[in-house]
């Protein structure tokens, strides 16, 4: 039990009676890379909102490293070690990539320490290394608003890593990327998986195939099935959800 970094039990979230998540159970082992797929409206993004504290559960509980997250707000959960990358890249456009990373990397996030402290040499080195990793060294000092979509995606992943979280939540990291960029992001995530627990939400099946070891399928707010990519792809329930009723059976 103690090996689970994240444990979700009987979780229900309803918005005005509509159940975005319905009696969902989910566990993630420390160090695991898990991909979550599911059709539109399956509750994938709500699932991340719950873990990061943006939305509070109607019923059930979320435990991170054994602690119930209900009473914590977003920044506290983030400091506990959960980092989130959003569906559309959300970086600070007016700041440079280096400054973006500096803000995330800052270890002491109180008002006065941010106010008085400047990044120390070890932080600067970490940031330089991260810029290298996400391939933005040369563009480190221009406004992030001038970066391309793919570069912004990479920068946001960099910001996530700069927080040095234990659990990374990554929402559609390759949406709108070229094949080459997709592969780069995939390799980046695989490299990160070596010492982080990661949950990836994705639509791009080829990408899922590249990185996935374990896949969870969400449907209508609950877990439909779990398993390796091949198991999941051949599961009749999954095929039904994605493709609708096979015609021979319907006939």
């Amino acid at each position: 039990m103690s090996n689970n970094i994240l444990a979700i039990k009987n979780l229900t979230v309803s918005f005005d009676g509509f159940k975005a998540l319905n009696n969902l159970n989910f566990t993630l082992e420390t160090g695991e890379l898990r991909v979550i797929i599911g059709p539109n409206g399956a509750g994938k993004t709500t699932f991340l909102d719950i873990i990061t504290g943006k939305v509070k559960p109607t019923q059930g509980q979320v435990r991170f490293k054994g602690r119930n997250l209900r009473s914590f707000s977003e920044h506290q959960i983030s400091r506990m070690g959960i980092g989130r990358k959003f569906q559309t890249p959300r970086v600070y456009l007016k700041l440079t990539p280096r400054e973006n990373l500096e803000l995330s990397c800052n270890r002491n996030k109180g008002v006065f320490s941010t106010f008085l402290g400047n990044p120390d040499p070890s932080e600067r080195r970490t940031i330089a290394g991260l810029l290298e990793t996400v391939g933005l060294t040369v563009k480190a000092d221009i406004a992030a608003g001038l970066l391309s979509h793919g570069e912004k995606q990479r920068l946001e992943i960099g910001m996530l890593v700069a927080q040095s979280p234990d659990l990374l939540l990554v929402d559609e990291p390759v949406a709108g990327l070229t094949d080459e960029e997709t592969e780069n992001v995939g390799n980046l995530l695989l490299a990160l998986a070596a010492d982080h627990s990661i949950i990836v939400i994705e639509h791009d099946m080829e990408f899922v195939r590249q990185i996935a070891r374990q896949v969870t399928v969400l449907h209508q707010g609950s877990v439909l099935c779990e398993g390796t990519m091949d198991e999941v792809q051949n599961d009749p329930k999954v095929i039904e959800v994605y493709l609708g009723q096979p015609e021979e059976q319907a006939a």
Partner: peptide, 11 residues
């Protein structure tokens, strides 16, 4: 520019 993003960065 993006207050809720700042929260998720731990501030």
């Amino acid at each position: 520019d993006d207050e809720s993003r700042v929260r998720f960065s731990g501030y």
